[in-house]
């Protein structure tokens, strides 16, 4: 059952798997890295100093892009109702969807960080911290995104709202993740991982409750 669900979710969210919109976060992420040097000027020191932070912001914004497609369409189609009738709990569906959502943007962003780091003139150690940080932080971004998407799925104009709501939830990840770059140490990445873990742990329940509430509302 889990595998069946995961397969369906991945076929809908994974970039290049079918519907064109799924590759958008990746392209968005790369274009920010590409445009930034044009906007602030090509000074190597400036880019090396601020580039890591820009990559973090691009990662956060890239995580917002797929939110609209994450829950609302399935709610409209009645997929959650039909799964519930078959005894599959909302929590399980949301846990699987969280994993699928992460797989379809987390690893991509981490890989895309290599060209982005080259464009922004980041050196080896900085890139290493950045990669570790993204590895620890993207599960949290995925979880928070799914939670917000489920909460706003039944609202009109929910898509616009979800972007706004996600930003404060992701601030701690951004602060500790980008902060570790500024200080050049990996200790605060522990905080990023801890926040991610917390978000990953509560999201299936929060998102599941949101779907139940929307159904009964």
């Amino acid at each position: 059952m889990t595998l069946t669900l995961l397969k369906r979710d991945l076929s809908r969210f994974f970039p290049f798997a079918g519907s064109g919109g799924a590759a958008l976060p990746l392209l968005f992420f790369l274009s920010v890295a590409m445009l930034y040097p044009f906007a602030v000027g090509p000074k190597p020191e400036l880019l090396a100093q601020t580039g890591g932070g820009v990559i973090w912001i691009a990662a956060l914004l890239a995580a917002i892009l797929p939110l609209e497609r994450l829950v609302a369409s399935d709610m409209e189609l009645g997929v959650f109702d039909q799964l519930k009738l078959r005894g599959v709990t909302e929590e399980a569906v949301m846990a699987v969807r969280m994993v699928a959502h992460w797989i379809s943007f987390g690893p991509m962003l981490i890989v895309a960080s290599f060209p982005a780091a080259a464009l922004l003139n980041l050196d080896g150690p900085t890139l290493e911290i950045l990669l570790l940080g993204l590895l620890a932080g993207t599960p949290g971004l995925a979880a928070a995104g799914l939670m917000i998407a489920a909460l706003t799925a039944s609202l009109r104009g929910g898509a616009a709202l979800s972007g706004l709501l996600l930003i404060p939830l992701c601030l701690p990840i951004l602060i500790f993740g980008a902060g570790s770059l500024a200080r050049g140490e990996t200790a605060s990445l522990g905080f990023v991982a801890a926040i991610s873990l917390l978000l990953v742990a509560i999201t299936p329940f929060a998102a599941g409750a949101a779907i139940k509430a929307a159904r009964e509302g």
């Binding site: 369906r8 519907s19 369409s73 189609l77 009645g78 039909q82 009738l85």
Partner: peptide, 14 residues
């Protein structure tokens, strides 16, 4: 077991 058919059968439009 119970099966429900309503106007939203959960079939992916795409």
């Amino acid at each position: 077991d119970l099966a429900l058919m309503d106007e939203r059968p959960g079939l992916d439009l795409d």
